[in-house]
Design a protein around this nucleic acid. Structure first.
Lengths: 206, 206
DNA sequence: ACGACTTTGTGCGTACGTTCACAAGGACGT
DNA sequence: ACGTCCTTGTGAACGTACGCACAAAGTCGT
């Protein structure tokens, strides 16, 4: 389920606040979802809550992490070390959730050798070797759009089977390879759409 | 609909390729969705295709832009000019879709005054004035998580009614304010989940 | 030891989005 | 002018996700 990471984040916050147990109701509030949904999700992954008490926070964190596969440290390569690549390489949320940046790659010779977040930028040509050596299974594409498909193909050839794409392009990949896309411009357009609805609605009321 | 920006991007690509008309089938292929879905979406916004021919690309671009409210240039403020803020400020996709970066704001005095993408970084204290002067309705939060809620409150106070949040926190806002969130870590966790399913499935086959 | 209270787990009705499949409609060749 | 072919627009079936509401279950105070 796509909501498990949300619960996980909320649980970490609760744990830091010293909470030992949590009810579906308060977890739902912390994750901004319905409490019945929380209970259904959690029951589906077999974790047992205690009726009248709630769920043990620490145990739940473990169960969800296990379900999401976060008990192992996934190796990640980031390709395209522009501003976004820098931001991703420095993003603390990766390390804290069990992801390890195995390499930063860029085609621009001016960027190769630069140290970013304690990792040296390498040329894209070394991709295949790095993937093999470090057992990388996740690739992040933060290149400009025209370069994305080529980089994607090289990732697939190297054996990477999960790709997170920030370039505003549709990637075509063979079966068995997962692609998730994040398009910043699309998010803004959706906001603009709602914003327009709001203003036209106000205009109608006037 | 959340798919309209996808169509729009595909249509722009087609237009650059010189296509004058497009069938629901080929547009569906370009956006990686079902063709019936495309036709339903387009018919719902009243645009008329021509049976036997397809849709006029240019006219469709105009209709979708209109529906999404992209015929006006929305003013956007970006708060938190770290690596991610830099990336956002430089992101070409914003300007090309009718968004205008009205201001870059940061609380760090060391960053104030810096020029990023041709815009000077200003202190957050000037937020309210800028929002009023530039008629800003969309705010982008790219601060660290602990600062996000505070920044969000200031945006709401200033009259911003649409917020794009990159900080890994749940924002609470009053009714009438839209929040969309992008959490990089959650995307990776979802990939890890699928990746784990793939490897355990292979293990079962062996 | 018992009863009241809290919270889980889930059955069920509802609503929504998706997809198939086909009839209506228009273009294009002959 | 007519028939064939292509593509749209949509009715209907399907599957799924959501949320209410309640029974089962376990805790805590007395």
């Amino acid at each position: 389920m796509a909501r498990l990471p949300l619960y996980l984040r909320a649980l970490h916050t609760l744990a830091e606040g010293g909470k030992r147990t949590v009810s579906s109701e308060s977890l739902a509030a912390a994750a901004a979802v319905n409490s019945a949904k929380v209970r259904k999700d959690l029951s589906q992954l077999g974790s047992y809550g205690v009726r009248g008490v709630g769920y043990d926070v620490e145990y739940l964190v473990y169960q969800i992490s296990r379900e999401l596969g976060l008990t192992q440290r996934w190796a990640v390569v980031i390709i395209g070390i522009g501003n976004l690549g820098h931001a991703l390489a420095n993003y603390a949320g990766f390390a804290s959730r069990g992801f390890r940046v195995a390499a930063l790659l860029d085609d621009d010779p001016a960027r190769v050798g630069e140290q970013v977040a304690g990792v040296a930028v390498r040329p894209v040509g070394e991709l295949a070797e790095i993937v093999r050596r470090e057992d990388v299974s996740i690739g992040v594409i933060s290149t400009p759009a025209p370069a994305a498909q080529g980089v994607c193909d090289r990732l697939v050839d190297a054996g990477v089977t999960s790709i997170l794409n920030f370039a505003p392009t549709l990637l075509s990949v063979p079966d068995g390879v997962d692609v998730r896309k994040v398009d910043l411009s699309i998010e803004l357009q959706i906001l603009a759409f709602h914003e327009q609805r709001k203003t036209t609605f106000e205009a109608l009321r006037a």
